[in-house]
Design a protein around this nucleic acid. Structure first.
Lengths: 292, 292
DNA sequence: GTTCCGCATGAATCGATAG
DNA sequence: ACTATCGATTCATGCGGAA
């Protein structure tokens, strides 16, 4: 299957106008938080955040397919001892545009930023706000099933130890089959709380969210060959995960360095696959970068 | 220490007017959810929820001490495929009354109700919205510390060998002091995400939250002898936990059965303590029920 | 080939100090 | 009075090198 990654450099409010109506299956993005990351992005004042975002929300509504989903990763910061209200105001304004506020998932950040203050504890969660265009949308729930409980993990560990023992005594005949059967029966649907650690290791470019986050929603809301849009792609986590999962992707960023970096790395991925599989597709004439 | 439980039967909007200004240290409550429990509370339509709550929020602001805290346990329900907006609208309206929206804790319900729907997974979290009257309020953070993660074990091992010597060699240096403080630390401050299972063993009275929930906030925001108010006490979980923790409590409920049941059970607790400790205080002449 | 351990770092916030 | 800058505080994760 041929997969493209379509990258743009510019203000997504303008760039989005180039995209056709009803062309995207999933929008997954984490916009710059108010007055955060001021050195890379301009920094939007909390009081003006909603006004800044709404025109973008309007365009996103246009490009999303009726069966598509928009997942917004965001968290309000503390201003003068209070939680800012721009996120919840944004939800109300988005509904006025016609968006449906379907659900709010919680990302529990297991390794939240340390610190101690007299009036609050560490902030260890972020919002994943799900918007939809219509009440009927594509959702592939079976793709994100998980092993049932923590007590299963210990049993799995025991099994793997047993696995080794049997491996020594008997040459495993049909044992793997048993495990897979057992695992299949122990799967359950997840909830709307996701437990993931932030990636804070010393990589070249730190992402704002771990790959597992877009991966989960991509599995849940798209199938192979669908189109995923990230209008604030940043270091490109969404784009790369989409590629790996054989989804097409459209990425936009206003920062030249991010755009260049993601473009280069996407090409690297392309080249890597070329070497591995000796199955290279020509770059599309329209500037789309082919990945297979 | 003598502890009272002051119970009222009636609409809290009216009953609250009897309470004096600045007399409560913590308000912890879980109001009837919109259109939920219609048979008991009559059910408030989601569209009218904010209008219904605001006069109560006004009175709560009056009775709370300037150093006190109001914790509101609530979660918006799904109406016509969308999350209702009355909770986030309520936050905005409460701020207009003068409340400060200090923080939003997440209660992750570890054993939430099983089930799935075509459009959504199980809802396994609720909001615990913290409002305050002033930016400075009482918070006893040390009372809710939790054991550190497993990573601490290896770190302890390391520090016991190398950093002890360094600490002795660099006596008085700020750096060494920091290290030693950290080394002795066995407990860490928690985050704003609480992991509690819903109680399913309580057959008599279906409480809306487990005892551990009010217990955590009572430890965090009050000391012994403080006054805790629950204007929607329901089956009285907040009241009983406050009693057990030697905090005074004020409970209000509009449902006669709830009022009677809590009053009877509080007296039972009273009698129980009388037998155990042979230290009984007369019931107060003003109708307050004494507990020690 | 594992296991263990050192270490950098992450969408942070408050209070004091300076301009 | 109001804004800007800076130091202090703090916990968990995963990479990479070493045993």
């Amino acid at each position: 299957m041929k997969v493209f990654a379509e990258l743009y450099h510019g203000d997504c409010k303008e760039v989005l106008k180039k995209l056709p109506d009803n062309s995207v299956d999933l929008i997954f993005t984490s916009p710059p938080y108010a007055d955060q990351r001021i050195n890379t992005y301009g920094g939007i004042h909390p009081n003006k955040y909603v006004d800044w975002f709404i025109p973008i929300g309007q365009e996103l509504l246009r490009v999303l397919k009726p069966t598509g989903t928009f997942v917004l990763n965001i968290k309000e910061r503390v201003v003068n001892g209070e939680r800012s209200t721009y996120v919840i105001e944004l939800i109300l304004e988005m509904r006025k545009l016609g968006w449906l506020w379907t659900e709010e998932y919680i990302w529990h950040k297991k390794n939240s930023y340390p610190g101690k203050w007299p009036n609050r504890f560490r902030d260890s969660w972020e919002r994943l706000i799900q918007f939809n265009k219509e009440r009927k949308f594509n959702m592939y729930q079976d793709e994100v099933m998980v092993p049932m409980g923590d007590w299963k993990k210990s049993r799995l560990k025991k099994l793997s130890e047993t696995d080794k023992q049997r491996d020594e005594s008997k040459v495993g005949s049909g044992f793997g089959k048993n495990i897979s059967n057992w695992m299949d029966r122990e799967m359950a649907y997840p909830t709307n709380v996701l437990h993931l650690a932030t990636e804070c290791n010393n990589k070249n470019h730190s992402a704002t969210f771990p790959e597992a986050l877009p991966e989960w929603f991509i599995k849940l809301f798209t199938k192979k060959g669908d189109v995923i849009l990230d209008p604030f792609m940043g270091s490109g986590t969404t784009i790369f995960v989409a590629n790996r999962m054989q989804r097409n992707s459209v990425g936009i960023d206003i920062v030249q360095d991010y755009y260049t970096m993601v473009k280069d790395r996407v090409q690297t991925v392309d080249y890597y696959l070329f070497e591995q599989k000796t199955n290279y597709e020509q770059t599309e004439p329209n500037g789309r970068i082919s990945i297979r």
